[in-house]
Design a protein around this nucleic acid. Structure first.
Lengths: 185, 185
DNA sequence: TTCGTTTGAGACATCCGTGTTTCAAATGAT
DNA sequence: ATCATTTGAAACACGGATGTCTCAAACGAA
């Protein structure tokens, strides 16, 4: 077999991380396939982007599940919540490395279905942050949605730091956690 | 007089904050001017974007100057540096409200001259953060470029929080400062 | 009012990205 | 080796955005 569908998806994501404005022709070239074949796998650019966006959301959902944020929130146990928070942020860092382009690309949010699913995942995470506030793990005086946006913004910072080589890959989780929890002073 | 050049610039920025992918036709309509007139003021879309991007950079530079970050850094006085840091972040919040679209829009960074100037401003700010670290105002164990990226990421969080109404405008500076300096725990 | 300037509407050419189709070549299984 | 399937290259149509141009209308100053 030449280049499979999954491989196309992977390579397309990699290329979009470098150039989020890539055209179908550029994506075809980057994935080692002709424009015609790319259209045989995906009906159009919109469908391709929906698939890639769904992959990114799959990764996000998987991170939430592996960190068991719902169970930790339900337990109301500070230790469990703290552990889940660490696992969540660590997993998100991995995800950002793979699907970082989806973070700030405005085109993704206009595709059918993606925004709704992203909102659901965000709401789940907000519920977790709220439980963390109630358990004394996170400050209760900050708006919980601000906390959610803070994580989002810091992930953008992570993406840029890794892209520009400002922080070593092996240090980034600890740096993110330190900054998020204790700040910069 | 009908609509002046400065007014076009202001309205165009406002519209791009809502729709960063706006076409020249949409910008003409949003600024209350015909497409022909828009082209009389600006040779092309690239020139228009360069002008708008320069405005955003002007605002950034003005904030740095008004906060007197260079003088504060040179003084090595913790109190002065702290004051400058507060003024810097407060000013950046204002700037983000006006020129938020330029924060994450990739098209801006490819325009001639803009990236170079943005790099200069960033380097000045990094020098200030470094002085803040040496003065004990900011943690010395974090990479200074990470701190710079953190500010950038948190400004993205500020933009989104204001856009979605998650945080009141009058609370956002304090919230940002608290989060940046002391973290979320 | 008169005259020079500015503007808007529309037509037009051009470019670029998307999407489709065709056909020959490459591939792969038997 | 044969035959069915898949692929690539090229050509084509199409739409949207950009940029240019013209001319009549609106405007503003004298």
């Amino acid at each position: 077999m030449a280049v499979g569908r999954d491989q196309i998806i992977t390579l397309a994501i990699q290329h979009l991380n470098e150039d989020p404005t890539a055209s179908m022709a550029q994506l075809a070239e980057a994935t080692g396939v002709s424009r015609a074949t790319l259209h045989r796998y995906f009906a159009g650019k919109e469908e391709l982007l929906v698939v890639l966006g769904s992959r990114a959301l799959d990764g996000w959902e998987r991170v939430q599940r592996q960190a068991a944020i719902e169970e930790a929130a339900a337990s109301a146990d500070p230790a469990r919540i703290t552990t889940a928070l660490h696992e969540l942020l660590t997993g998100l860092v991995n995800d950002v490395q793979e699907h970082g382009f989806a973070l700030t690309e405005h085109v993704m949010t206009k595709l059918p279905g993606l925004q709704e699913r992203a909102d659901e995942l965000e709401e789940r995470e907000i519920a977790f942050y709220l439980a963390a506030q109630r358990a004394g793990v996170l400050r209760p005086d900050l708006p919980v949605r601000w906390i959610s946006n803070t994580v989002y913004g810091l992930l953008v910072a992570v993406r840029e730091s890794l892209r520009r080589g400002d922080v070593a890959r092996r240090d980034i989780e600890r740096t993110l956690l330190e900054t998020f929890l204790r700040g910069t002073s």
